[in-house]
Amino acid sequence: MKLKYSHCSRAVLLSFLLADCGAALAATSGTHYSIGTEGVEAGTPPPPGMHYRMYNTWYDAGRLMDDNGDELTMDFNLEVYAQAHRFVNVTDTKIFGANWAYNLIVPVVKKEIAIGGAFDRSSDFEVADIVIEPLALFWYTPKFDAILALAAIAPTGSYSADEPESVGLGYWSGMVTAGGTYFFDEDRSWSFSTLSRTLFHGKQDETDVRPGMEFTLEGGVGKNMMLDDHWLIRPGINYAASWQISDDNHDGPGTVKDQRKRVYGVGAEVNLMYLPWLLQANLRYLNEFGAENTVEGDCITLTFTKSF
């Protein structure tokens, strides 16, 4: 039988659970950029024109890791489904030899979380924190592509400090993206890519905690192969990593300011493109490991992209 708690009682119960597991599941334990979103050819921008991409991500984590990277001995499960709608316009305007682009990402998220058999909550399927990227610079050369971009992430999703199922994080973030893809041959078939994101955060509503800066890397190695005149397939191996690179500004509910998060991931993916329609689909799997002060799990991402 599931126990029912009043709002106040849940807050008290959660505070004890958070204290027991340290910073691993704190009010600031989420992130505005989850690793595994991109992989092979992550540093290759789309060509000039309009593009729409829909990300579908399923994340399942059953391990909660402490400051030493050891799993905490409590029943824990986190399940997230996120659907993000991305709209990109790559213009012909040149800045420093690059094409200027801008884009908007609107994520819709459902989150379910259970802790210790005493806390079991889920969110509605609702809009989370929106990404606005007004400045992106894309460079294209025969053997190397590059990206540099600036974005703001607005706290548009619902948030409450005592509700870990909140789809929003309750603070603004700035994000700097930089990276590229190198092609080993003139046909641009074999590639190696890496894409970095550096995130700077504002203070969180209710807790007044400013989370420390984050740095992520994503990319992969892949091979483009033509199946016939219409179909192109690209299998590959992807990797990802995320580090918190500065302390929180002070301790918060369930947080210790100098206990930083980190996690690594590796996986595989396949991309299939139907050239006459400029339509492609990508299926990616990522297994996380080496986590500290955060959750550790598995991620499956299915994306569909239509260019116009």
Results as ranks from 00 to 15, higher is better:
D187A: 12
D187R: 07
R188V: 01
R188E: 01
R188G: 00
S189I: 04
S189L: 04
W190M: 09
W190H: 07
S191I: 03
S191G: 02
F192V: 02
S193D: 12
T194L: 08
T194W: 13
T194R: 11
T194I: 12
T194M: 12
T194G: 15
L195S: 09
S196A: 11
R197Y: 15
R197T: 15
T198Q: 12
T198V: 13
L199C: 05
L199D: 06
F200C: 13
H201M: 11
G202Y: 01
K203H: 03
K203T: 03
Q204P: 12
Q204Y: 14
T207Y: 03
T207G: 10
T207R: 04
T207N: 05
D208F: 02
V209P: 13
R210E: 08
P211W: 11
P211E: 11
P211N: 11
P211F: 06
G212F: 01
G212N: 00
M213P: 11
E214A: 13
T216A: 11
L217E: 09
L217H: 06
L217S: 08
G219E: 05
G220L: 04
V221G: 12
V221A: 05
V221K: 08
V221I: 14
G222W: 03
K223V: 02
K223G: 03
M225Q: 07
D228G: 00
D229Q: 06
W231H: 04
W231T: 07
L232W: 12
L232A: 09
L232M: 10
I233C: 07
I233P: 05
R234L: 03
R234Q: 05
R234C: 06
P235Y: 02
P235L: 05
I237N: 13
N238M: 07
N238W: 05
A240M: 06
A240S: 12
A241D: 07
S242K: 14
S242P: 05
W243P: 09
W243N: 02
Q244T: 09
I245K: 00
I245R: 02
D247N: 15
H250Y: 00
H250E: 09
D251A: 09
D251I: 01
